[in-house]
Design a binder for these strands. Structure first.
Lengths: 153, 153
DNA sequence: GATGACTTGATATTCAATTACAATCAGGGC
DNA sequence: GCCCTGATTGTAATTGAATATCAAGTCATC
C-alpha cells in the first residue's frame, strides 16, 4: 500500500535497485532505456500513460517513437515491475516486484492515486468464483474506483 | 450466465424487447439506431469492438462515423443494456438489464465467450476490501481470464 | 408553425497500440 | 582480434480506440 508522505526520491531509487537486482538474478537485461522508463513511471507516482512516458523520454533528445516505449513497458510488465491499469490505459510501478502477481487496485477518482492490494483473501475468493463458474483460472484484473481516505477529508 | 446451446435469434429478440420495455418505463428513447446497435452486440454473442459494430452498422448504407457508434454504446451502457470489457476494449450485452450493476466477468481465453457473474458475495467482498483500504466505494471492474468448461474438453 | 431539447450526421483530430523492416549492440566461439 | 547469432533499439507507416466540434434533423409542446 502506498503512503502519501514519504521521500519520493528514495522511493524511486529503491524501486530501481530492486529491479536491477531481480534482473541480475533472472539474467534479463535491465538496459538504460528500460531503467529510464521505470524511473519515469515511478517518478510520477500515479498512473502514467504510454504517451506521457514518450513525451518525458523525448526531452532533450530526438523524439522517440511509440514502439520504443511500448517495448520497454512490455518488458517491465513481463518482469512484474509495472502493472497496467486497464480502466485508465495507464501504468503504475509495482509495489512488490519480487513476487509475480495480478494487479488488484483501488483507484481514487479525485486524486488519481492508486493503491495496490496484495490480499491473499481477495485472490482466493476470485479463484473460487472462477471455479464455481466452471473456469480454469488463469489471471484476473480488479480495479475498484472510489474516494481515498486523504481526499474524503 | 450464458448457455452455449440455445436458440440465438430468440435470445436476441428477448434482449431487444426487454430493452424496449425498460426504456418505456424510464421514458428514455430506444431509437432505431440504438436498437440496431444493441441487436448487433447481441448478434455476435461475444465481446464486440466499437469498430466491428461500426462496420456492421455501415453495411448497405453510407458509412457511419465513430461518434454515431460510441454515442449509441454510451446510451446502452448508461441504461445497463451493455457492459464494456476493459481488458478487451470490447462490449457485451448484459444478461440482467433490469438491475443496474457492475460488470464482473469471466472471459474464456480460447473461445472468447464471456460469462457475467452476478454474485452478491463477490460484490460484498470487493466492497469490504475497499473499506479496509480506506476507500469510499464507487464502482469496480473484475475480469477473470481462464478456460471455460466447454473448451477444456 | 415556432421554440427548445434531444438525437444524429459529418469532419477532423487526438490518443493508444502494433506491424514491418533496418540498424545497432552484446556476448560466445573460433 | 573477428565473425556469427540473438536481443535490443531506431524509424516509418498504419491501424484501432475515442473524443471534440459544429451542423442538420427530429419531435413533442406551446
Amino acid at each position: 500500500m502506498l503512503k502519501h508522505k514519504h521521500d519520493h526520491s528514495v522511493c524511486i531509487e529503491t524501486a530501481l535497485e530492486a529491479a536491477q537486482k531481480i534482473c541480475e538474478k533472472r539474467e534479463t537485461r535491465f538496459t538504460p532505456l528500460r531503467r529510464r522508463v521505470l524511473e519515469l513511471v515511478w517518478r510520477k507516482h500515479q498512473p502514467i500513460t504510454a504517451y506521457e512516458v514518450l513525451d518525458l523520454l523525448s526531452e532533450g533528445r530526438k523524439r522517440v517513437a511509440p514502439p520504443t516505449v511500448y517495448r520497454a513497458l512490455d518488458f517491465l510488465i513481463e518482469e512484474g515491475f509495472v502493472h497496467r491499469i486497464e480502466s485508465l490505459n495507464a501504468f503504475v510501478g509495482c509495489s512488490d516486484p519480487e513476487h509475480k502477481h495480478q494487479g488488484h487496485f483501488m483507484i481514487c477518482t479525485k486524486c488519481s492515486n492508486v493503491t495496490e492490494m496484495n490480499e491473499a483473501s481477495l485472490h482466493s475468493v476470485i479463484e473460487r468464483a472462477a471455479k464455481e463458474n466452471g473456469y480454469t483460472y488463469e489471471n484476473s484484473i480488479l480495479e475498484i474506483a472510489g474516494i481515498c481516505a486523504n481526499c474524503r477529508n
